[in-house]
Design a protein around this nucleic acid. Structure first.
Lengths: 147, 147
DNA sequence: CTAAATTAAATCGCACGCGATATAATCATG
DNA sequence: CATGATTATATCGCGTGCGATTTAATTTAG
C-alpha cells in the first residue's frame, strides 16, 4: 500500500492546467485564423507589427518571447504569403527589419473581430478573465530574474 | 491618425499571457527534467502512469489531452529509454496497454522533489497560485462543449 | 589599425501538437 | 454469417519551440 506524493498528481498541478489551457486556446483560434491562412504564432507576430511596423527580428522576439530559431522560419512563411517583407538594415547589415505589406496591413481589419469571437467561446465572467490575465502576468514577471 | 483596435493589442490579450506563461513553465522544467532525460510532455505521461499503471494509449490521451498522433511517438521514445513497455491487449488487439518498467517506477521517487523545485522558482504567494489554477480549470471546463 | 569579443540573425536537430488519413480489429445489422 | 460502420492506434505532413551552433557584421581593446 504505497502512498503517492500528492504533489506529483497531475490534477494538483498548476503547470499542467497552464499547459492544457494554452493548447486549448490555440485550438480555439485555429478555425478563425485558418480562414486567413494564419497560425496562432504567426497571428501574434502580425499583432506586434500592426502595433509597430518595421521592427527588427530581435524586437519582435522580445515582445513575443520567441528567438530567431523560431522567428526566422515563421517570418519567411509570412513573407512567402506576401504579408511582410524582410529588409536588411543599412546602418547595420546584421539587423533585419520586418515591414508589413499592403496585404499584411489590410489583414488587421479582417482580423478585428477575432478577439470577440474568441471571447464568445467562453462563458466565464469578464471579471474572472481579467483576473486570470492579471495573475498570469504576475506569474510571468515573478521569475524573469535574468535576461 | 488611424486608431488601432484596443483588443488587437498583444498586451491586452489573455490568450497571449497564457501562451507565454505555458512556454515559460516548460522552459523552467527543462533543466530539472533533462537531468532524468525527460521532456515536459514525457513527464506528464509518466505522472499519469505513476498514478495508474497499465492504462491504454487512449486513456492516457484523455488525461493528458493528447491524441495518438502525439502520444504514439512519445511513448515509443519512453519505451526506447526502457521506462515503459507497450503491450497489445489480448481481448482487443486494437488496444495498447502502457506499463511502467522497474526503471519507470523508480523514476517517481527521483522526480518527487521537482514540484518543490518548480515552486521555489516563483515568489508568488501560494494562495495566488491556487487561485490561478482554479481560474485556469474553470476556463478549461468553460468551453468543452463537445467531445 | 587590427585581432578578439560581441552581437543579430540564420541554421541545425529533435520533440512536440495536431489535422488528416490509414490500418487493422471489433461491432452491429440485416 | 457477411458486410458495412465504428473504434483504437499508427502514420504523415507541417509548423512551431528551443538548445546549440554557425555566420557575418560591428564593436572594443590593445
Amino acid at each position: 500500500m504505497k502512498k503517492q506524493p500528492t504533489q506529483l498528481r497531475l490534477d494538483n498541478q498548476l503547470c499542467f492546467s497552464l499547459y492544457a489551457a494554452s493548447r486549448q486556446v490555440t485550438r480555439l483560434y485555429q478555425p478563425l485564423l485558418k480562414a486567413h491562412g494564419l497560425t496562432y504564432p504567426q497571428y501574434i507576430v502580425l499583432m506586434i507589427l500592426w502595433q509597430q511596423d518595421g521592427l527588427l527580428v530581435g524586437e519582435i522576439g522580445k515582445r513575443a518571447q520567441l528567438n530567431s530559431n523560431t522567428l526566422t522560419p515563421l517570418l519567411k512563411r509570412l513573407a512567402q504569403q506576401d504579408l511582410v517583407t524582410r529588409v536588411r538594415s543599412e546602418r547595420d547589415e546584421r539587423q533585419c527589419h520586418i515591414y508589413l505589406t499592403d496585404a499584411g496591413k489590410a489583414l488587421e481589419a479582417a482580423c478585428s473581430c477575432i478577439p470577440q469571437q474568441m471571447l464568445a467561446q467562453t462563458n466565464m465572467p469578464a471579471a474572472d478573465l481579467q483576473q486570470l490575465k492579471a495573475l498570469l502576468d504576475t506569474f510571468l514577471s515573478s521569475q524573469l530574474s535574468d535576461n
